[in-house]
């Protein structure tokens, strides 16, 4: 790959995804720069998860163009993108130690020592099968597997919704540690207040369209509101 300092991390042009006749994403055009943490916000069914899945390579676009660091979605982008789904994807028969071995096998940027350290910090039993863990603990394991990678792009779909407040603080600290000038983070969440302190930019999605975007600092300067207050204003029922 040639120098990608000025290349956008994520680039979409007229990106469309239809489920039958229903547009989940409607000709989205956006460019997410390297080194930023972008909050992807919107009401249920707005297209946040669809966008994340398209970038992760789990969905095929109906139309339009999508690339990560100039590369079309494929094995090359999957090697540099760390994806955290909102559901548990680690096989239930695995133990956290086996999951570490699995991720280390397939991802060159996976730091097994860091993963084990994070799991111990979160008091996750390493030799117990995933099926024997609570829902919140499963989510912690999955998050650790993703954040232990030194990826170029982290796609986090609802990373803090199902965990206790103490773990939530740990997750937010971990996300902050993952930030570096060469990487980017795209977070989808409903817990805006928790994310506001770490997000640089935001995107509001509704019915598959971008209704508003900008910098988090700009929201405060221009409107005097927090991002959470702006969200409630824009998407008032």
């Amino acid at each position: 790959m040639t120098s990608d300092i000025n290349m956008p991390l994520i680039s979409c042009r007229d990106l469309t995804k239809l489920y039958g006749a229903v547009p989940a994403l409607n000709r989205i055009t956006l460019s997410v720069p390297v080194g930023k943490c972008t909050a992807l916000l919107g009401p249920n069914g707005s297209g946040k998860t669809t966008l994340i899945k398209l970038i992760a390579g789990l969905l095929v676009p109906t139309a339009g163009h999508l690339s990560v660091l100039g590369c079309p979605i494929g094995p090359e982008t999957k090697a540099m993108v760390a994806y955290l789904p909102e559901r548990n994807s680690i096989p239930e028969w695995m133990t956290p130690l086996q999951a570490i071995g699995y991720f280390r096998s397939f991802y060159a940027d996976f730091d097994a020592g860091h993963a084990e350290e994070m799991l111990r910090t979160l008091s996750v039993p390493l030799d117990r099968k995933i099926r024997q863990l609570s829902k919140g603990t499963k989510e912690k394991v999955q998050l650790v597997m993703v954040m232990a990678r030194r990826a170029r792009l982290y796609l986090l779909d609802e990373p803090i919704s199902g965990v206790d407040p103490a773990a939530r603080d740990f997750i937010i600290r971990t996300i902050l540690e993952a930030r570096n000038p060469g990487a980017g983070i795209l977070i989808s969440t409903h817990l805006i207040r928790d994310i506001e302190e770490i997000a640089d930019d935001y995107l509001f999605l509704q019915h598959g369209n971008i209704v508003r975007s900008g910098t988090v600092a700009g929201v405060r300067e221009e409107t005097g509101m927090t991002l959470d207050e702006l969200f409630r204003e824009v998407f008032r029922c």
């Binding site: 390579g57 789990l58 494929g74 094995p75 999957k78 994806y83 559901r87 994807s89 096989p91 991802y107």
Partner: peptide, 13 residues
């Protein structure tokens, strides 16, 4: 199934 979220994001064809 949900395990597909793990399988289909592996960096393999």
């Amino acid at each position: 199934t949900d395990e597909g979220y793990l399988t289909m994001v592996l960096p393999v064809r």
